[in-house]
Nucleic acid binder design. Sequence first.
RNA 1: GGCGCCAUGGUGUAACUGGUUAACACGCCGCCCUCUCAAGGCGGAGAGUUCGGGUUCGAUCCCCGAUGGCGCUACCA
Length: 480
Amino acid sequence: MTSATTPRVRFAPSPTGYLHVGGARTALFNWLFARHFGGTLILRIEDTDFERSSQEMVEGILTGMRWLGLNWDEGPFYQSQRLDLYRATAEKLLASGHAYHCFCTKAELEQRRAEAAAAGRPPMYDRRCRSIERSVATGRKAAGEACAVRFAVPDGGTTSFEDAVFGRVEFANAEIEDFVLLRSDGIPTYHLSVVADDLDMRLTHIIRGADHISNTPKQVLQYRALGAELPVFAHVPLILGPDKTRLSKRHGATSVIAYKDMGIVPEAFRNFLALLGWTPGSEHKDKEIFSSDDLIQLFSLDGISKSNAVFNNDKLAWYNTEYIRAYDAKNLLPLIEEEWKVFNFTPERGPEEILSTIELLKPRARNLKDFATTFRAYFSDSFEFEPAAVAKFLKDDATRSLLVELGKRYEQAPEFTEYWAEQILRSFADESGVKAGVLINGARVALTGQAVAPSLFAVMGALGKARVVNRLSGAGKISA
RNA sequence: GGCGCCAUGGUGUAACUGGUUAACACGCCGCCCUCUCAAGGCGGAGAGUUCGGGUUCGAUCCCCGAUGGCGCUACCA
């Protein structure tokens, strides 16, 4: 592939908030697209709204991308450091007559908009400054009068573009107002800076949220005015909450880091996100689990859906269990250690034991948090008994004394393996005239504090003789 | 309000250029397995494709209209 045909794409978040779910998916699609074609992904920070942008948010966005494993090839570039480019672009547009100075003040504009609304007219800019003579305008500007630069939208006709997802999209020019390119303080608006940057960065494909469809004709108009070729636009449908309104804080977590904090594994989140609004096609319709490499290989703009998608937490949770189960214990350990840190928990087991215990537990973990909460008893002697579990399997005094007695049997046993642990328990149950299940269920609670756990004898194997004996001997004192 | 876009079970999606008992996954229900809970295996409920018109021998698929949802409508991005 020659460099001329190698795609160059970008992710261009505005640092007015953390990396949210929708932004993350846009980033993911751009990344997938770039990696699929061996192209270049550029990270551009759109921080021209100084009021709302902050370095903290930039860091948050970078953290989110790293967590998802999305690396970029160029940047991050900051629009706040590229103001000269935008001013020069505005000058070009001014010089070619595609833009003009506007001396209307914000207050005047607002008042006229209110009047228009009251009269039932569309609240568009009335273009009054468009008729000001060039020389007059430059004179007024030179005299120190504040002015913005507006784009002169053609009077009639339509502006259209071919979208890789939506097909041909067309707008009547009469519907597009003479939008502001450069604010009176010399700071560009989004409309100008995107075009100037997308052009300057030689981007070939613009993959972004569908909320930008209506903005696109304003950009197309500038490309034409500048005599530039259009990139390929690909608008991605939005992600909605369960009530089908745009995903927002009302729906709970919207920042990707919040999902990390909730104990979600990044591969699960990425897989889930990739299939929200995109499908690898019918040949793969029976498959749901896709590795990063699979996704890169399969990704294509053709598979992007046109309709908005609802974010489904249940499905995410399912992916999480699938991925946790598939993890190697040694790769899972660092993630679990992070959770332990969050909970201020220190395991009291050796490294080998920890790994084999993770191996035992991971098939039934739903979430990384489980390792620091419900699975505590496997890693430390300080753990809580779940009242419901005690009430269900240990409420009987007789059962508890039998467990204490069972502990003694184990203590005296010459061998303590999963096999012998089971033999001993079952023969003890026979001898005592109780069902093995009673002792098994009771022992599980005595050993783990939980009613839910892996096979009891596997648990015993993981805990080791000393702990098993010790915890069973304390069974008499457990109360609900 | 204006303009634009979209519309398949509760959710995500599939159904080659119109011909299928409308498929898969999540979720839900039941059964099996079983020492609990997951997992796993098996089975089930749940959409006639938003609605109404066309075109056609035949429409999820093409056309028109309606409805609904979403987006844009700033000197925000």
